[in-house]
Deep mutational scan, measured.
Amino acid sequence: SKIRITWGDKTWEWDGDDEEVWKRILEWARNLGDEELWRHVKEWVDK
């Protein structure tokens, strides 16, 4: 399956939905430097 994140007018996609993928997404969000996006992603990961 895919994980799709839409933020503003951008959309990103990742293949898979296991823990490793979420770790990569969390790292990606942090590297993007958008605090609010990172917080949202972290909330999803922690669920």
Rank of each mutant, 00 (worst) to 15 (best):
V21R: 02
H40G: 13
D34W: 10
K10D: 12
E27M: 07
K47R: 08
V41L: 11
I3A: 02
R30W: 15
W22L: 06
K23C: 04
G8H: 10
I3K: 03
D34K: 02
I25Q: 00
N31G: 13
E13C: 04
K10S: 12
V45L: 10
W12G: 04
V45Q: 10
R30S: 12
K10T: 12
L37Y: 03
G33Q: 09
I25P: 00
K10E: 11
D9W: 01
V41D: 00
D17H: 10
D9F: 01
A29N: 00
K10A: 12
S1W: 07
S1P: 15
T11P: 01
D17R: 08
R24I: 13
E36P: 05
V21G: 04
D9P: 04
W22F: 11
R30I: 11
K47V: 12
A29R: 00
E36C: 09
H40A: 10
G33R: 04
D18N: 15
D34M: 07
K23L: 07
T6Q: 12
W28E: 01
L37C: 04
G16L: 13
W28C: 02
W38D: 02
R24H: 09
W38Q: 08
E43A: 10
S1V: 14
W7G: 00
R24M: 13
E36T: 06
R30M: 11
S1I: 15
W7E: 01
I5M: 05
E35S: 07
D15Q: 13
D46W: 04
W14R: 00
G33L: 07
T6S: 10
R30V: 08
R30L: 14
N31H: 11
I25N: 00
D9G: 06
T6P: 02
W38K: 08
D18F: 10
V45P: 02
E36Q: 07
R30Q: 08
E19L: 13
K2A: 09
D15E: 13
R24P: 01
I3D: 00
T6E: 10
W44V: 09
K23M: 11
G8F: 11
W38A: 08
W28I: 01
H40L: 13
L26G: 03
I5H: 01
D17M: 09
G33E: 09
V21Q: 03
S1A: 15
H40K: 14
I3S: 01
S1F: 14
S1Q: 13
T11G: 03
W14G: 03
H40C: 09
I3M: 04
S1R: 13
S1D: 11
A29T: 03
V41P: 00
E27P: 00
V41H: 00
H40E: 11
K23V: 10
W7H: 04
W44E: 04
G16C: 11
R39F: 08
W14N: 01
S1H: 15
D46L: 06
V45S: 12
R30A: 13
R24V: 11
T6R: 09
W12D: 01
E19Q: 13
W22P: 02
K2V: 10
R39I: 12
K47Q: 14
T6W: 08
E27Y: 06
K2I: 07
R4H: 10
G33K: 06
L37E: 01
K42W: 11
R39E: 10
G16M: 13
K10P: 01
G8I: 04
